[in-house]
Amino acid sequence: MNADFPLIAASKAVSRLPVHAVHGLAGTSFKHEHLAAILDDRAPQGFFEVHAENYMGAGGPPHRALETIRLEHAVSLHGVCMSIGSPQPLDRTHLARFKALVDRYEPALVSEHLAWSTHDTTFFNDLLPLPYTEATLARVCDHIDQVQDAIARPVLLENPSTYVLFSCSTYSETDFISAVAQRTGCGLLLDINNVFVSATNHGFSALDYLANFPIARVGEIHLAGHAEQADDEGEQLLIDSHDGPVADAVWRLYEIVIGRAGPIPTLIEWDSNIPGWPILKAEAAAAQAILNRRDGQQTWDKSRAA
């Protein structure tokens, strides 16, 4: 159910573009500097994810590159500025541009963050955390309903990486996310690096978090690198930096999740200190190997049961 859940609504429309499956595949962030290497690489590829806000212009080189990629590969459209958790109304212009991208590229997956990044006319270059309260829940659900109504398909909501907690919260993060999914019918994007970062920063168990996460709603997984710093008291502080390879501890958590949930489409995020294509491709290949082992195990289990 996991990989198919968020794709059901999208599959009903007649596609103008080639339809590429994503189930059981690993993908990478698409970076323009890798385009030539990707086109020259004759080995089978997975899918590619792009940030929606980088393509909200009408045309030019970014769109020409994305159009080239989209013809041969599935694309995951990942929003970073919708400000789903903002106390103010959604930006209608931004939502209209987001919808236009969904219509133009017919992405296999569409996602946004459980976060806020705007206040009045100020836009922050950060994904800021939310208090998990009834008021926040109502606001987030209303905003997700607006997004899903606009794009006419489910959106995947990504769990955050956090550096502060709110004493006024009345839900755990996993219970809050479960409630959002139940009320709106949205899918979920499980970022395992975010889970590890938050668990380390706040001193809770990443395994317990994952055990309580509504895994049946997950349509995509993110893996990424993080940076290690120290806070003002000298305690370890992890930053969700997307600037290096996936950490061993995150790979171990990923194997546990895939073992439990099956081969969910998985995306390697690498957004700064971007390496050459072979390095990024190797990270995706490592994820693909884990997905393949689980997919093979499922096939073996079914044949044995028969």
Results as ranks from 00 to 15, higher is better:
residue 202 H to R: 07
residue 202 H to G: 06
residue 202 H to A: 13
residue 203 G to T: 13
residue 203 G to Y: 11
residue 203 G to I: 12
residue 204 F to R: 00
residue 204 F to H: 04
residue 205 S to K: 00
residue 205 S to T: 00
residue 205 S to E: 01
residue 206 A to W: 00
residue 206 A to T: 01
residue 206 A to V: 01
residue 207 L to I: 14
residue 207 L to C: 12
residue 208 D to Y: 03
residue 209 Y to I: 03
residue 209 Y to C: 11
residue 209 Y to E: 02
residue 210 L to T: 04
residue 210 L to W: 02
residue 211 A to W: 09
residue 211 A to S: 15
residue 212 N to Y: 05
residue 212 N to L: 14
residue 213 F to D: 04
residue 214 P to Q: 05
residue 214 P to N: 03
residue 214 P to V: 10
residue 214 P to H: 07
residue 214 P to T: 09
residue 215 I to L: 15
residue 215 I to N: 07
residue 216 A to V: 11
residue 216 A to N: 12
residue 216 A to L: 04
residue 217 R to M: 07
residue 217 R to E: 09
residue 218 V to Q: 10
residue 218 V to K: 10
residue 218 V to C: 13
residue 219 G to V: 05
residue 220 E to P: 12
residue 220 E to L: 11
residue 222 H to A: 03
residue 222 H to W: 08
residue 222 H to P: 09
residue 224 A to D: 06
residue 224 A to R: 02
residue 224 A to G: 06
residue 224 A to L: 06
residue 225 G to S: 00
residue 226 H to C: 11
residue 226 H to T: 09
residue 227 A to H: 12
residue 227 A to E: 14
residue 228 E to D: 14
residue 228 E to G: 01
residue 229 Q to T: 14
residue 230 A to M: 14
residue 230 A to D: 14
residue 231 D to Q: 03
residue 232 D to K: 15
residue 232 D to E: 15
residue 232 D to I: 14
residue 232 D to W: 15
residue 233 E to C: 13
residue 234 G to T: 03
residue 235 E to I: 03
residue 235 E to M: 12
residue 235 E to R: 15
residue 236 Q to S: 13
residue 236 Q to W: 09
residue 236 Q to R: 15
residue 237 L to M: 13
residue 237 L to P: 09
residue 237 L to R: 15
residue 237 L to I: 13
residue 239 I to L: 15
residue 239 I to Y: 08
residue 239 I to P: 06
residue 239 I to K: 08
residue 240 D to V: 08
residue 240 D to G: 03
residue 241 S to A: 14
residue 241 S to K: 01
residue 242 H to T: 10
residue 242 H to K: 05
residue 242 H to L: 03
residue 243 D to W: 11
residue 243 D to E: 12
residue 243 D to S: 14
residue 245 P to V: 12
residue 245 P to C: 11
residue 246 V to A: 01
residue 247 A to S: 00
residue 247 A to K: 04
residue 248 D to S: 07
residue 249 A to F: 00
residue 250 V to I: 00
residue 250 V to N: 02
residue 251 W to H: 04
residue 251 W to N: 00
residue 251 W to L: 00
residue 252 R to G: 00
residue 253 L to R: 05
residue 253 L to M: 11
residue 253 L to I: 02
residue 254 Y to P: 01
residue 254 Y to S: 06
residue 256 I to W: 14
residue 256 I to F: 13
residue 257 V to Y: 06
residue 257 V to N: 05
residue 259 G to P: 09
residue 260 R to A: 15
residue 261 A to H: 08
residue 261 A to E: 10
residue 262 G to F: 05
residue 262 G to I: 06
residue 263 P to E: 06
residue 264 I to C: 01
residue 264 I to K: 05
residue 264 I to F: 10
residue 265 P to L: 05
residue 265 P to I: 08
residue 266 T to W: 10
residue 266 T to M: 05
residue 267 L to K: 12
residue 267 L to I: 08
residue 267 L to M: 15
residue 268 I to W: 02
residue 268 I to P: 09
residue 268 I to H: 04
residue 268 I to Q: 08
residue 269 E to Q: 10
residue 269 E to Y: 06
residue 269 E to H: 05
residue 269 E to A: 06
residue 269 E to N: 07
residue 270 W to V: 01
residue 270 W to N: 01
residue 270 W to K: 01
residue 270 W to R: 02
